[in-house]
Design a protein around this nucleic acid. Sequence first.
DNA 1: AAGACGGGGTT
DNA 2: AACCCAGTCTT
Length: 330
Amino acid sequence: MDRFNRFRISIEEYYSTHKRDLPWRKEAPVPYEVWLSEIILQQTRVAQGTPYYHKILAAFPTIAALAYAEEDKLLALWTGLGYYNRARNLQKGAKQIVAKYQGQLPEKYNELLNIKGIGPYTAAAIASICFQEKIGVVDGNVYRVLSRYFGIHTATNSSAGQKEFQNLANECIKGTKHPGQYNQGIMEFGALLCTPKKPNCMYCPLNDTCHAFNTGSVGALPVKLKKGKRTKETLHFGVVQKAEKMALRKRETDGIWAGLYEFPQLNDAPEHGQLLEEPVLHKLSHKDLYCSFWAVSETEISGDYSFYSKEEVQELGMPIIIADFVAKRL
DNA sequence: AAGACGGGGTT
DNA sequence: AACCCAGTCTT
């Protein structure tokens, strides 16, 4: 038996005995549910994403409902999940599917790639889980598992690495009869056993032939290129409250917090204004935001804002730091 | 090829 | 504090 088949069979065996019961995992997976769950879970832990999956599926039970939804309503449900362009692209994708595919997800990997928000990972997941296409998923788990087992030292976040790991993943999946099970299996294996820190090598069914385990390089794999330094930014929010309403404005459609609502920003600490709480450090993965909230009069703020009540705010997407503040103060 | 894009959990 | 998470898009 070759190395690829040995690997695949162990993964399938592992999955059959360890798979978690997740809401979108069904005997006959529903393509829309798989798509929605995969978008929500991009760069997001299952535990964090699952409640959002339930809320959003309940609010928009079909692709058509999602396509015709108010963007603000979708973003309101997405509030706190991060990477908000996922939500906006999800809806663009839904519109594409309604327009070009009669509201049904296409079945082929190459067709799925044309849909907004669907990249190589998500296309492979949908095509394999829903339509039995043999394309390997490549996510953070897969990079880790493959790099260790096969001893691949190419950086996973380099162009060469992405190609190499995709090719390897495609090689591994070739022999299977159940592409969706195998793909979910390798991710489950990475999430539960072949973990980033302290992987459970002693109980690993593949340790006899794992390159990393047998060369003592488990801790050195996968190899990743370092990202640049984080940047710092200071934000001054102008809080104007009148008659149980607060002034909010919708952000531009690109950059951070695209399309979300926030307090109008001030260029600097205002001359006339009361600091409502000690400046908060809001840490994003790529920058540190020092946020100050100032009670100011309406003359201090400018731009295209409107006043919203507690009820109206429920229908708006907001960065979590704004949503939390509004919840406390309104 | 490199950076931008969130927020939260783990080590 | 650094790393990671069922990645994708833009420049």
